[in-house]
Design a protein around this nucleic acid. Structure first.
Lengths: 120, 120
DNA sequence: ACGAACCGTAAGTCTGTACTTACCGACTCT
DNA sequence: AGAGTCGGTAAGTACAGACTTACGGTTCGT
């Protein structure tokens, strides 16, 4: 819980949660103020904030009876890291198959020339 | 449809879909081969691939009776762009409030010193 | 041309979850 | 201390969507 790309990803999947996230990106806000600008009830906002907090996307801070929420960079970074990892894997895979094809061509011209994807 | 951060985000929210995405990151694969390595049926994989394709996260290419899927950079970039936009907003907001606080301090020492978040 | 392989779609079921109302604790100010 | 404000939690409902089986269309090999 916290700095996990998968959790952050699924947290930002819900439209209402994205709306909350985008609203907090414009500046820190208290829960009630957040609920006023959204088409859902205050308890719903609380529940969403819980999910966003568990995903490391927001942090909360007490201010009297209010709780002020703001965006947390950790969750954002976690998603970035996840995507970079995946895309890096894909790039390495592309390079590998390219090298394999080049080596194949050097030896002998292939006859049963199937396409180049993984075979178990 | 295609290069939208929100769609790509919610597409990668499902665990099975993430598994498919991660599997394709290791290299392009056909649908049946993909289904063998996953705990769900082949039609389920087809439906997930449809969602991933609509989100711009994968592309498909016919190869005889098979369809080979591979990762598409556009969806990944869309998510990156969305997150960067949000975090950029947050940074600008931080800077604004910091400047406002500095100006406030220069004029007169604040008395009713409430915390600095947005008031409607 | 016929059978086989591969894949997408249709229809139906069932679980997860987003939402509501109701309730209760924490903090503030007079 | 008591009234008022703010916010998290509980319980219950309703809808989205993930999965299955069954079916049909397309392409390849013999």
């Amino acid at each position: 819980m916290g700095t996990n790309g998968a959790d952050a990803l699924s947290a930002l999947a819900d439209p209402t949660r994205r709306a909350i996230f985008e609203c907090l990106a414009r500046g820190p806000k208290a829960v009630g103020l957040l609920a006023e600008q959204l088409p859902v009830s205050r308890p719903a906002v609380s529940q969403h904030l819980r999910v966003l907090k568990d995903a490391g996307l927001v942090t909360d801070q007490a201010d009297g009876t209010r709780r002020v929420y703001r965006i947390d960079r950790r969750g954002v970074d976690a998603i970035h890291a996840y995507l970079d990892q995946m895309w890096g894997r894909a790039l390495r895979s592309f390079q590998e198959t390219a090298e394999r094809l080049a080596a194949q061509e050097q030896n002998g011209p292939p006859e049963g020339d199937r396409r180049e994807e993984e075979r178990p």
